Amino acid sequence: MVSQVKLEEFLGKVEGDMGGACGTPLAFVGDRLEDNLNLLGWMFYSASSTICVPASFGHDGAALGAQAGEAKIKEVVAGGGFTKFRRATQPPTNMVFEARP
């Protein structure tokens, strides 16, 4: 994710008739480092550190990467003007969130 903050601000401006926004599936991770110290977490941290974080920094983003966790994503979404936030679904390796104004 290049800049989740910029994405949420943009979605807040254009959501209009949709009444909400559904975010990109994010890796299923916990809010604390300890929750992510497993094989899948190590893989996501490696990819995120080499791809997501540098790309985000390059676009003045928050550099959340793939390991932000639900609490941080909720904070960013609220910063974009959304007041309702929930986990819409949870396949085995991802989380999908729904945000509404």
Rank of each mutant, 00 (worst) to 15 (best):
V77S: 03
E34G: 14
V53W: 06
G80E: 03
E8G: 04
A71I: 00
L37G: 03
G41K: 03
D35R: 13
V77E: 00
S56N: 05
E9I: 01
G20A: 07
E8V: 11
S48H: 09
K6G: 15
R100C: 14
F10H: 11
G20V: 03
G19D: 04
F57E: 06
G80C: 00
G16V: 14
E9F: 01
M43C: 10
P91N: 11
S3L: 07
K13W: 02
K13T: 07
D17T: 15
N38C: 05
A27Q: 09
S46I: 02
L26K: 06
K6L: 10
F10I: 12
E15Q: 08
A47F: 07
A55V: 15
G19L: 07
E9Y: 01
S3F: 04
I51P: 12
K6T: 06
H59W: 10
G61L: 08
V53S: 05
V14L: 07
A71N: 10
R87T: 06
L26I: 08
F85S: 07
D31F: 02
R32L: 08
W42V: 09
A62E: 09
P25R: 01
V77L: 00
G80V: 00
V76T: 11
G69N: 01
A99P: 04
V76P: 05
T89D: 10
G19H: 10
Y45M: 14
E75R: 01
E8N: 05
G20I: 08
W42I: 11
E75L: 07
A66R: 01
G41R: 02
R32V: 03
R32S: 02
F97E: 04
G61A: 06
G16N: 09
A68L: 07
K72S: 08
T24D: 05
W42P: 02
T89P: 03
C52A: 15
